[in-house]
């Protein structure tokens, strides 16, 4: 059974059709790229999967369960984590706290226990902090645990955001343009990081990226969308040669009229 199944999903913003009749199926452990020109509906797709939008039509299944219509935090607690195109870390909380708070659904205690500091609270806090610490160590961020994210360089902020997504122990990780704004060195590190994450955490990864080097390098399968519709789906090699993809990116070849 596919881990994520998006079936004939259509989404409208008022009169604007952002996503049309889109299908997407992710098997466990796959690393799939979602590409397409700006405004093609890629991020909308992410927003639909993470529960931020409710699809106008269609169905989204995760692990066999229909998740369209759930609130985002409920979707997350089922095991879908994401990063954002424009980094959205909590800037007045330390890096460490950022990684703790994203485990909210794993806390298992509520207001009263947080005040009374019951044994359950203590064990839960210990667990959450241990996870966050471990994650920081694995990502090489331990040194920045007590920094505020806004004081970190861009590449590190991306890394923290990925760490925050990972610390909630997802089964599916959605990365929204992780290489945006990175310099070539940082991009190389990122490529290694994404591969390593997939292998280390046995994750399924769906990746939106404009940076072709990243996509072609790490994705096993690539889905190309334009104007909200799928125009191609296949291995990097196939996509590279697909006529419709080239058209979408470079435009139609028109006969020149003298």
């Amino acid at each position: 059974m596919a881990l994520l199944e998006v079936k004939e999903v259509t989404h409208f913003f008022g009169g604007l059709r952002a996503v049309y009749n889109l299908n997407l199926s992710l098997e466990n452990g796959e690393l799939v790229g979602l590409i397409g020109p700006n405004g093609a509906g890629k991020t909308t797709m992410f927003n639909l999967v993470s529960g931020f939008y409710r699809p106008t039509e269609g169905e989204i299944r995760f692990n066999g369960k229909d998740i369209s219509g759930l609130r985002p935090h409920q979707v997350t607690s089922l095991g879908i984590a994401r990063t954002f195109q424009n980094i959205r870390l909590w800037n007045s909380l330390s890096v460490f706290d950022n990684l703790c708070i994203s485990q909210h659904h794993l806390l298992g205690y509520g207001f009263l226990q947080s005040v009374l500091r019951t044994p359950k609270f203590r064990s839960s806090e210990r667990r959450v902090k241990k996870t966050a610490e471990e994650m920081l160590r694995m990502l090489g961020l331990s040194h920045y645990a007590l920094e505020f994210p806004k004081n970190l360089p861009y590449g590190l902020q991306r890394r923290v955001e990925i760490g925050r997504a990972l610390s909630l122990r997802p089964k599916l990780l959605l990365l929204d343009e992780p290489a945006a704004g990175m310099n070539p060195g940082e991009v190389d590190e990122l490529i290694d990081l994404i591969r390593w994450i997939r292998d280390e955490f046995k994750l399924t990864v769906l990746l939106i990226e404009h940076h072709m080097r990243v996509v072609m390098n790490i994705c096993e399968r690539i889905k190309v969308v334009d104007f909200g519709e799928t125009i191609a789906d296949g291995s990097p090699e196939q996509i590279r040669q697909n006529r419709r993809v080239i058209q979408a990116y470079l435009g139609e070849e028109e006969p020149v009229n003298a």
Partner: peptide, 18 residues
């Protein structure tokens, strides 16, 4: 601290499990 996350970025908070 979830309420501070709501202050800093409510959308991120909701999507990141709060």
């Amino acid at each position: 601290k979830g309420i501070v996350a709501v202050r800093d970025d409510e959308i991120a908070a909701e999507i990141m499990s709060v």
